[in-house]
Amino acid sequence: MMDLKTALFYVFSAITVYAALRVITARNPVHAVLHLVLAFFTTGALWILLQAEFLAIALVMVYVGAVMVLFLFVVMMLDINIERLRKGFWNHLWLGGIIGALMVGEMIAVLSTKYFGLDSMPAQAVAADHSNTKELGRLLFTDYVYPFELASVVLLVAIIAAVVLTMRRRQGVRYLDPARQIAVNHRDRIRVVAMKPERDLPAGEGK
């Protein structure tokens, strides 16, 4: 009998493969995106089985929680003509098939042969109180601090580029500066004027 971990691995892998297949076969793009989310989620579960809880949670947080939300956001707005999308399917099938076969071949080469030295990296037994998160943080900020900083600079450049590319100043927008709205004083808006009555009130009124 397989142990629970192996059984869970097969369950999650089956769901991942199914979800990944549905991503490319679903007719509705929104369904495809949601299956991609499912694929990410189950991949996260697989990583948890490998005791890489930081990576798993980061995957869910970054991809499921942020990237795919924005992706879904965009896909939902698109008016997609499914007929037109599927028109070139048979013409491009051979190209896709070759690329797919290449990727599968590469993965087989890496995972199943000894040339890439996978067997020289045996699975390490970790203690129960071993904190993956702490270990990763320590490595990132000591041994790999320069690559890490470099990656963050690349990301910063991407952020600034995205802002610059989408920034545009529109004319004729009635935008109110909130700082000026808050700073406004009652004296700027109304003026209380003391003035004499236009005519004298008859006796007995106005009391």
């Binding site: 930081f54 980061a58 869910v60 929680g65």
Partner: peptide, 17 residues
Amino acid sequence: LDAGVLYYLALTSVGVY
């Protein structure tokens, strides 16, 4: 969990779906 805060942030961000 040692990564409790991350777990919390990850799951609240899933709630938007």
